[in-house]
Design a protein around this nucleic acid. Structure first.
Lengths: 149, 149
DNA sequence: TAAATTGTAACTAACTAAGTTACATGAAAC
DNA sequence: GTTTCATGTAACTTAGTTAGTTACAATTTA
């Protein structure tokens, strides 16, 4: 798994899970989808479990399942559950007492708040079902869903 | 200078420059504002020079000046000139041939394009002059612009 | 009881970005 | 013209972050 690809890797995993709704997939299986190892998968999607987006079960026959229907899982929820901010620029004070810095931080934070609201709104309109529908269109056209490479 | 604070540090520098429009400030002076060293400053704002936002001159009495009036410098231009993307999540393929991944990347890239347009639009409405005006309001109230810490 | 699976802590490796050193280049002052 | 002051930039070092790995306890089913 490459850097900064947590969101896309997680979506990749979730679409595969949505395609096998009745079958619990192991961390091992999920790991092969995104070319990493099982522990990284568990760590990455642990937050999704806490958010009810997926469920996990231990022991023989255990693994991961979607927590609810793909239509009810939005990219906004997934993004939040991953604990990553979409806008990672920092506005932490480095020169306490400098009024110039205070002015800069205020303006930048106002922008960030407005921007985050906008992005969340856009992401909340896209669901996992939209992704699976897009996948199926491609599959019906080409007919292969490989992980050979 | 902390990580991910290039944008806020650069704005900090630019407002100070806007407050001394007739005086070329050296990298050394700019560096003290953001608690780093002159080479980091030159490297960071080199892109702003290429974009005409600032000018630099060498030799005795040299240093940095704004390239045009603060009213004509938008945060959108500054952000672009810094060469940083506001939305750094990756959508590079890791499993070429996997239709699931292709569907995910397509949706995510569409989102990114729309989001970047939105953010650029918002940032283009904020100018360096807005920041200096905000600073002056604070200064008139409190009357100190320290870099003691 | 054995096998399969997650949960998680602790450690290692790879990558990124800031910080630093060094020095060539250019401009002004004298 | 030589000295001084400044930027430009390459090369290296350091620090911080994140993915990857190992190890093992806890849990579940056959």
């Amino acid at each position: 798994m490459k850097r900064n690809s947590k969101l896309s890797s997680t979506l990749h995993i979730l679409v595969h899970m949505a395609e096998k709704p009745e079958q619990a997939l192991t961390s091992e299986q999920l790991a092969t989808f995104i070319h990493t190892n099982p522990v990284v998968v568990r760590r990455t999607i642990a937050g999704l479990r806490d958010a009810g987006i997926v469920t996990s079960s231990r022991g023989h026959g255990g693994g991961w399942l979607l927590g609810r229907a793909p239509e009810k899982i939005s990219l906004a929820e997934i993004s939040v559950a991953l604990g990553e901010t979409l806008l990672p620029f920092s506005t932490e004070p480095e020169s306490p007492g400098c009024l110039v810095e205070q002015a800069v931080i205020t303006v930048l934070d106002d922008f960030r708040i407005a921007a985050e609201r906008l992005l969340a709104e856009k992401l909340s309109r896209i669901t996992l079902a939209d992704l699976t529908a897009d996948f199926r269109r491609r599959f019906d056209l080409i007919g292969v869903s490989s992980h050979a490479v």
